[in-house]
Design a protein around this nucleic acid. Structure first.
Lengths: 229, 229
DNA sequence: GCAAATTAATGATTTATTCAAG
DNA sequence: CTTGAATAAATCATTAATTTGC
């Protein structure tokens, strides 16, 4: 039986390579249009769906972060054990490439007739799916509008090849202008919706979010109460 | 300017009523098809999109749970303060309605021409969106296949009007047969994919998931191990 | 050298947390 | 302060590596 009906997507080396390259280039949370592009591109190297791309970035990001947390934690513990007083590593971050953000997605130019079977398909259930099917136009950060050029995005951190220091909290906004040639409609996003560039606070000061929860025996108290309101 | 371009959905009383009724009927995590139905139905009473329905159930579920946690926590603390030795509450759970699951979604029969603007629309970004657009057919628990009648689902818990006791771990599988009349294609899901009916362990014994994480100063030990493989 | 059994990676879901409009 | 919207973390489940016995 050819075409193993495997339930999960098995990325080919090429696909993986490209994805990793993109990630290293700063792509972190591609938006719908970008995902479509990426998917279409990668489809050339094998079967793939948008959700795979979505998941991949999601997981990759999360696990990268997790890895760092582990690492830091270990280091921290080690240092704690050593009872030294010197701060771990002064965040080098520095000059590197903060604004050079190169929109890796823009380099995609395939459009091979392989297609990824986008639209149709009578998808069964799947929780998250649902949300999509209705998505008229989500009032989020960016506009995949046609004409407009300089659009600020949110995700897809720029530069910062490999954050291996600790804080690196800030991140350069990037993301290709995108604007695929297909959806050239009006699409003017409502006046609100413009987050202050979140999405990457590695080590927040509060509690959840990116805090190391159990992984490292963090303090984290706070029972139910102290509402932020 | 009529038609306030408000960013968020403002559920009308009718919509809200129906949604709550559904929730009380056991609908907890409607699948795509169900969401479509619900949305189409509710669209009669005002503008609404699938994602609104999706979010609503998501939030309602989460907050109901949160409320319970808070409540339980408070009670627990109170009891702890009382320094009594008697076990809190013997889980009443009992007979209630475990299998009566009435698929509230099935009662929907509108199909009013209001439509909810499902498919089209050149949605900009939105993270989760992406994933959808590709969803060929997600290899998840159920099959929204056409003909087959008795299909087990996963979400949409049955019965259990209001879990206010503690454990209530089990849950009756329910979910309307769904199977919208549109996707009558083949759609034969691969031989694997058949979860043992998860998705609702309110108060698991392990750690995260539905457990009271931090909210109530739970124990929560157990790292990753004891793989079922 | 191969195949069953274990372990490690990682794709896919669900749940919790956070943000911000009303 | 309630709650819709969005993201990130935790978890599950399956596949690929790797080890072990023959």
């Amino acid at each position: 039986m050819p075409q193993t009906p495997s339930t999960r997507w098995c990325p080919t080396p090429e696909q993986l390579m490209i994805l990793e390259e993109m990630y290293r280039s700063g792509v972190r949370t591609p938006n719908a249009a970008e995902i479509q592009q990426i998917t279409a591109h990668l489809a050339y190297y094998g079967r793939i769906e948008g959700k795979n791309v979505f998941y991949w970035f999601q997981n990759h990001k999360a696990r990268e972060r997790q890895r760092l947390r582990r690492r830091l934690c270990a280091r921290h513990q080690q240092q704690a054990a050593a009872a030294a007083a010197s701060p771990p590593i002064p965040p080098v971050a520095g000059g590197s490439s903060a604004g050079v953000v190169h929109p890796a997605v823009m380099q995609l130019h395939h459009h091979h007739p392989y297609a990824t079977s986008f639209m149709p398909h009578p998808h069964p259930n799947l929780a998250t799916w649902a949300m999509q099917q209705a998505t008229t136009f989500p009032p989020v950060y960016a506009a995949a509008g046609a004409g407009a050029g300089g659009n600020e995005k949110q995700a897809t951190v720029g530069g910062v090849e490999e954050w291996d220091a600790a804080d690196t909290t800030s991140c350069g906004a990037t993301a290709s202008g995108g604007s695929s040639d297909e959806g050239g409609a009006a699409l003017q996003l409502p006046p609100c919706c413009r987050r202050p560039l979140k999405t990457l606070d590695l080590f927040p000061t509060k509690s959840a979010g990116g805090g190391l929860k159990d992984e490292c025996s963090s303090s984290k108290s706070s029972s139910c109460s102290t509402s932020t309101n």
